[in-house]
Amino acid sequence: MRKRTRRQLQGWGAVVAVLAAVWVAGNWAMVWPVLVAAGAIAVVGGAGWGLWRAHRIAVDRDRQWRAQEEAKARELSMAEVDALTWQDFERYVAELCRRDGCTRVVVSGKSGDLGADVVGYLADGRKLVVQVKKYAPERSVSSQDMQKFVGTARLEHGADVALFVTTCRAFTKAALGLAVRQDIVALHRDLLGSWVKGAHLATLIPLNGSGGGTRRPPV
């Protein structure tokens, strides 16, 4: 009984297919535009799906990369920061900037950069220019160091936010006073330590002028 029913269904299916073919042949002028439109929709839909999938893959990869950068930027203690070369320290500062949402972050990594060791853009679109000084903890950033950065940060590099980051514990009184007057954000060792431990850059910028640093024994 089941075999007979299956054969009947197959027979009716063949009849329907033949009738459909005959109808299409007799009405081709009306059918072909529909087929062309359906094909175009399929192509466009396939292309759109491919673009959406490529976008999702790119977004996922970017998210993974940022997560890796953030993890990398949080791994170091200040003792490990002290052990970095000045080139690695510049790259590490760039990683901290990326961790906090900065985009298009570039490390100069060469002499003659006129104070722009790291350049990027804050999340709100403002241009960030960073001067990085890898000094021994017991040293101080001099007024001369600050004067050089003041002279180039905005006039030469167009900084909206100018950041002076150092591993030493203090800015001299003259250097810090100049930074405050010229709206240069001075990040001494203690503030850098907070940044390394996870404080967001946006919370550190308003602390400029909160002291030249401390003279406590090295961490």
Rank of each mutant, 00 (worst) to 15 (best):
K3N: 14
R4T: 11
R6N: 07
R7T: 12
Q10V: 09
Q10D: 15
V15T: 13
V16Y: 10
V16Q: 15
A20P: 00
W23T: 13
G26F: 14
G26L: 15
G26K: 13
W28V: 15
W32F: 13
L35G: 11
V36C: 05
A42G: 13
W49P: 00
W49K: 07
R53M: 13
A54T: 02
D62L: 00
Q64F: 00
W65V: 09
W65Y: 11
W65N: 13
R66C: 09
A67W: 06
A67Q: 15
M78T: 07
E80G: 08
V81K: 02
D82C: 02
A83P: 00
W86M: 11
D88F: 07
D88H: 15
F89D: 01
E90K: 12
Y92C: 05
V93F: 03
V93I: 11
E95L: 09
L96A: 06
C102H: 03
C102P: 00
T103E: 14
V105K: 12
V106D: 10
K110A: 15
S111I: 12
D113E: 14
L114E: 14
A116Y: 05
A116P: 02
V118Y: 08
V118A: 09
V119F: 05
G120A: 05
G120E: 03
K127T: 03
Q131G: 00
V132Y: 06
K133S: 00
K134Q: 10
Y135V: 02
P137H: 07
S140Y: 00
V141R: 04
V141Y: 08
S143H: 15
D145W: 06
M146D: 08
T152P: 04
G158A: 04
V161Y: 07
V161A: 05
L163P: 07
L163E: 08
F164D: 11
V165I: 09
V165L: 04
T166F: 03
A170M: 10
A170K: 11
F171N: 03
T172V: 04
T172P: 02
A175D: 07
L178N: 09
V180E: 14
R181P: 01
R181I: 04
I184T: 08
L187Y: 01
H188R: 06
L191Q: 11
L192P: 07
W195V: 08
V196G: 09
V196H: 09
H200L: 04
T203S: 06
I205N: 09
N208Y: 02
G209R: 03
S210K: 12
G211C: 04
R216L: 00
P217Q: 12
